[in-house]
């Protein structure tokens, strides 16, 4: 479903932040991406959700080489990838409800058709009561849960989450992890970058370890 071959990436021609990264994510798989701060986890995820382009190597998504893709096909591809950004990226002038509804609005759906879905997912992440609050009035953990709800509301086949439990208490973390596992069971390909060893060890999922821009093949091999 997602395939990296010898991918290298450097910001603005500087030193390479990712080096010779090769891996493949199967449809319906759940994978953790771990590694110390600055190892390149966010950078790798940015390549997956097409916010950055690799400086070398090949990335294919849904069986297509993204370098060979026409510009007009990119938005449709992005709609098939739900993203939880490390810095949330909520729109401060919209309510929690409107933030979560954003992907559906972009897909051209009417409010009547998505209202129930949006309210359901907001209730699931425990924000049913705060759905008309705006992000500046919410706590860090509440914002994070809105970011997660927005990433999953359109049920994309690929879900990418960057530190999705960073600002959340362990209990809520477990609850949200259950959401990811549930979505994964329903067929979503999930890739989660995290520092949280507990999260990784609690599940039996595959782990890609990133260290100084390289995938630690030995550690990864344990799960292959």
């Amino acid at each position: 479903m997602i395939r990296f071959e010898n991918v290298g990436m450097s910001y603005g021609g500087g030193t390479e932040v990712l080096r010779d990264v090769s891996f493949e994510l199967a449809p319906g798989s759940l994978t953790f991406l771990t590694g110390p701060s600055g190892a390149g986890k966010t950078t790798l995820l940015k390549l997956v959700f097409l916010a950055e382009r690799p400086t070398r190597g090949t990335i294919s998504m849904f069986g297509k080489d993204i370098a060979a893709m026409r510009k007009g096909d990119i938005p449709a591809l992005r709609r098939r990838i739900g993203v939880v950004f490390q810095d949330f990226r909520l729109l401060d002038h919209l309510t929690a409800y409107e933030n979560v509804a954003l992907p559906l609005r972009i897909q051209g759906q009417s409010e009547e058709s998505y209202r129930a879905d949006v309210e359901e997912i907001l209730a699931w992440v425990g924000l049913g009561e705060r759905m008309h609050a705006r992000p500046p009035t919410l706590s860090g953990g509440e914002k994070q849960r809105i970011a997660i709800a927005r990433a999953v509301v359109a049920r994309p086949p690929v879900l990418v989450a960057d530190e999705p439990t960073g600002s959340i208490d362990p209990e809520m973390g477990v609850r949200l992890m259950r959401l990811f596992v549930e979505l994964n069971r329903l067929g979503t390909c999930v890739l989660i970058a995290t520092h949280d060893r507990n999260l990784v060890e609690a599940s039996n999922a595959r782990e890609l370890r990133l260290f100084a821009g390289r995938i630690n093949q030995a550690a990864g091999a344990r799960w292959l």
């Binding site: 959700f49 097409l50 916010a51 938005p75 449709a76 591809l77 992005r78 709609r79 098939r80 993203v83 990226r89 729109l91 954003l102 992907p103 972009i106 897909q107």
Partner: peptide, 16 residues
């Protein structure tokens, strides 16, 4: 810019 980026990454087309 932040709004444009989020819309873009969420799959909004230029015409949207």
């Amino acid at each position: 810019r932040d709004v444009v980026d989020v819309l873009h990454l969420t799959g909004a087309t230029a015409s949207f």
